[in-house]
Amino acid sequence: MEVKAELVGSVWKITSKPGDQVAEDDVLMILESMKMEIPVTAPKPGRVKEIRVKETDVVKEGQVLVVLE
């Protein structure tokens, strides 16, 4: 399952790593946009398979950030 950016912004802090078990609503990373910290959360429980961005990357709306399985 792909977790996408809900708006344009930059990656401020990545708080999960591949292999992590996550529950629904767990914070995977925090984006920054319009001076706001925007948590990216897991829509469903799962395991982090891949993180496709690194801190300070600029991301577009709809861009895949994390892949869960």
């Binding site: 809900e6 708006l7 946009s33 319009m34 706001m36 910290e37 925007i38 948590p39």
Partner: peptide
């Protein structure tokens, strides 16, 4: 709602 998109209006 700051929880979603930081509460930014769109």
């Amino acid at each position: 709602q700051p929880m979603s998109k930081g509460g930014i209006l769109d």
